[in-house]
Design a protein around this nucleic acid. Structure first.
Lengths: 199, 199
DNA sequence: AGTAGGCTGGACCAGCCAGTCCAGTCGAGA
DNA sequence: TCTCGACTGGACTGGCTGGTCCAGCCTACT
């Protein structure tokens, strides 16, 4: 944050964020404590408050940013060039695999929920993530259009929004029930309907 | 729970559950305390532990059950008889309106997330809710089939699962960003694709 | 009327955990 | 080498909150 961070300081700060992220992947925010983070990152409490002066929420927000970046990064390179049906299919597989593997916990979701309205900026992290995600999907659909695989009068944003909603819901259901079939159904149905729109 | 509950006792127990539900609609689980519930329901701590001997989690689980029942109840009578395109449209409007009004908080979601794996039965509440919900949607699609509005070879469960995922995702996005457009997009796209399948 | 047992009030306790404080170390530039 | 400030360790605290306990009230049933 501040300019006065030395290389060593930056490293420690990152270690804390990544360690905290790891902790939050194992236990819920409401259960995780600063002591957990300290143990995992081999830091002391004064370090935590040195790098995140306003306390826990500031650290949590930093972790949220970190996790949000991760979400889209995990879908690359496929999400970046959805210009053929094969690319869409590969992307679909990556998404399903990623979330099936993650399974139980959604650090970002519970993080933002926990920070909520009280912490300014928490909501913005999700808003930005959703915007970027939908943007990528829309770009992919447009790529299919220019390649002649889809009619030009398709409402791109609408379809991208619906697809994104399907993914989010599929993930949510996966996380609360443990079954990934809804995520698969949403993706397959969404892509399938897109393909049908080609004819 | 126990048979020995008097009418008065039952009333108090219900008052506690409903009061707790009201509290949880205002603040997150992790922030809400037993004192909040006590204040809202004008009960003492001994009453809370009298009706929910094992403590907070037991109360929270009861609230989760209560909220889960509410979800489907709010969508009636439309969800119960999705036998025409008009009925689907009206149901869509009810869902959008309900969640737009609820807006910010999803008591059930955060509740189950908070109880998590530690409390047996928490996950089951959501699983059961999702099953019933999807069942209702599937029944509605089948009704359209028998009425001749949809081809008989449609994969009903698959479509119902995708639609449900879209709803859940739309709601999730609505709650974390404040915008309902994804929920609307998911519903409209889902129903629209269904209609297109008719032709 | 008597009584057993459900029902209620509220004081009290113990553990947890974010946040504070200060003393001390390390490292880079003058 | 000196010095300043970033960096680190760890003891301490204060408030919050779930949970306990017991004494007394109310009510259904005999």
């Amino acid at each position: 944050m501040r300019k006065e961070l030395t290389a060593k300081g930056k490293a420690t700060r990152n270690r804390i964020i990544e360690g905290a992220a790891a902790v939050l992947r194992e236990k819920d925010v409401s259960i995780a404590t600063l002591d957990d983070v300290m143990a995992r990152t081999r830091t002391s409490k004064s370090q935590l408050f040195h790098y995140f002066p306003t306390g826990k929420d500031e650290l949590l927000l930093a972790v949220a940013h970190h996790e949000a970046d991760q979400v889209l990064a995990d879908q690359q390179p496929y999400l970046g060039c959805l210009d053929s049906w094969e690319a869409w299919q590969r992307w679909r597989d990556v998404v399903v695999e990623r979330y099936e593997e993650q399974g139980e916990e959604c650090p970002l979701g519970s993080l933002v929920l926990h920070l909520g309205r009280s912490t300014p900026g928490a909501r913005d992290v999700v808003v930005a993530l959703m915007r970027q995600w939908q943007e990528s999907l829309a770009t992919g659909i447009r790529a299919l259009q220019t390649a002649g695989h889809l009619p030009a009068d398709l409402d791109v944003e609408h379809r991208a929004a619906a697809l994104l909603a399907g993914i989010q819901g599929g993930v949510a259901i996966l996380q609360s029930t443990g079954r990934a079939e809804h995520l698969r159904a949403a993706l397959d149905q969404g892509i399938g309907d897109l393909r049908r729109a080609a004819a």
